[in-house]
Amino acid sequence: MSARRPTASLDRGTAAVLVAIAILAPLIFNTYWIGTLLTQMLFLGIVAASLIFLSAYGGMVSLAQVALYGIAGFAIGNLTTNGNTKGLNLGWTPLAAIPVALAITIGLGLLFGALSSRSVGIYFLMITLTFSVIANLFFGQVTSLSGFGGISGIPAPGFIGNVDHHPDRLYYLALVLALLVYALLRYIARTPFGLTLQGIRDDPVRMSSLGYNVTLHRTLAFGFASFIAAIGGVLFAYWNGHIDPATIGLGATIDVLVVAVIGGLSRLEGAWLGALVFVLINNYAQRIGFVSDRFHTLIGVVFLVIVLLSPDGLMGLWGRLGDLRRRGERPGQAPTGGSERGSGELEPTV
């Protein structure tokens, strides 16, 4: 069992260097990198982290995280816009809308969680996929809240200002939130709740007979993950200024799964690594001559290769590199990211 526990494979030095680079990024990169690529990486990473949290600590691979992130975004859009042709146009101040958007998302997340918490493995994947399809169709058809065209002109709070004029403000907000989310998820994993959740992941029957309420823990974990996803959704709404049902369509749902898998489904850091790789491929593939308008094929091939070569994604590869380096010094230590372990396994026992 211990081999299955998610481990942080970034040592402190590496982590410190990465955080330092992230903080200094606005001095290093141009505004497009900051305002578009890196900010996108941060909030996509937050959503993917909510997926990885459920997968790594709860054994639940959820495809509803994008829907939840979208619900938060739609809530922000409906609450804060004014004078648009679509949406409720409630015209609240952006700051007042945040807690309401989070609350709505968490409420729906708990409902989804309660409905799906008795399913496991691939069934859980499917039922959460269903939720995301319902959300997509709901916002497409219910024109008073959105309709297919979506909601445009979503304002960011005053301290962020116009995202295009001050891209670094939203970037820093996203960075701080991403670090907090990471710390919070790591902390939760060590609380009694997190330990119980991991116990349930490994052996739900035993935990149940020990008196733990399995479905309740799963539901609460799902609700908590929806809170994380909602943070990403709020950031997205401010960043894009626009949200429509395609934001939470099947394509977007799979994109976030791709992000999580590229990074590594069992390591939280992988969320941001996967997001970075995904954002860069998406952005630069079109400039490669021979792919240009066929860059979706390239994305598919990269994804396929990563899934085939490294079940733990890039973090798994990183871990294995580390093992290779250490092997000489500390003989006998088991590799942490070997393919024999396979994060692809959903059932604790085969």
């Binding site: 691939i122 898998v261 979706h296 396929l304 079940p311 959903l346």
Partner: peptide, 21 residues
Amino acid sequence: QGQELRQALITIAVSIIMADQ
């Protein structure tokens, strides 16, 4: 064999490539 999620992910990758082609 036996790695359900990994197999599902493989088929997702195949479907992305096929759709574009």
